[in-house]
């Protein structure tokens, strides 16, 4: 059977981009096999969407945007907590409303590293992000997950820089409250 243009492209994409995509995914899902599946799904999706790809962005950007959506979906699926919360952290501050400030590791475990490694926390956070108002959600995802430039986001949403920071701040406060309930109160 003759190879289509998409088949030919896909082979070169695997050579050119699979390592980059795999590295990106593996560092975010902390599971080699899952990362492999996500990269494979990304290429499958790209193949399906090939006819609709308008080449306004580079292939690399396009593939990464597909992969990011898949990782976000993966994080969303991890919302239900299977392991115990970060109870290894003990309170050492009299101000109990002082959220993370009130918790410190009781061993040599590095606090940030512990959170950083925690895919389930990320999953819980995705659930909280889904509860944000549509506009805030879009802006938050663009900034924190897609790492878009603030100016670009302001242009896209037609908001001023100060509006942008207010929205980001409100979203963060809402996420903090949501995580308090969803994660730390369990």
């Amino acid at each position: 059977m003759a190879q289509t243009k998409a088949d030919i492209e896909l082979n070169s994409w695997v050579d050119d981009y699979s390592d980059m995509l795999f590295n990106f995914a593996a560092n975010r899902v902390s599971d080699r096999d899952l990362a492999k599946d996500l990269v494979q799904d990304t290429f499958f999706s790209a193949l399906k969407a090939w006819d609709r790809f308008e080449q306004k962005s580079t292939v690399k950007t396009w593939l990464f945007s597909i992969l990011k959506r898949k990782i976000i979906d993966q994080w969303r699926q991890q919302q239900s907590r299977k392991t115990k919360p970060i109870s290894q952290f003990t309170t050492n501050d009299e101000d109990e409303n002082n959220w993370i400030e009130a918790t410190t590791p009781n061993s040599e475990v590095n606090e940030t590293e512990a959170y950083f490694e925690n895919n389930e926390l990320r999953g819980a956070l995705m659930g909280c992000i889904d509860l944000l108002p549509e506009k805030s959600k879009g802006i938050f995802i663009d900034k924190f997950i897609d790492h878009k430039d603030s100016e670009e986001i302001c242009n896209e949403y037609e908001i001023t820089s100060s509006n942008f920071w207010v929205i980001i701040h409100r979203a963060k406060v809402q996420l903090k409250g949501c995580l308090d309930k969803k994660w730390f109160d369990q």
Partner: peptide, 10 residues
């Protein structure tokens, strides 16, 4: 610290 963790996660 919450901001830092948020940034680290994503």
């Amino acid at each position: 610290r919450f901001s830092h963790i948020l940034k680290s996660l994503f």
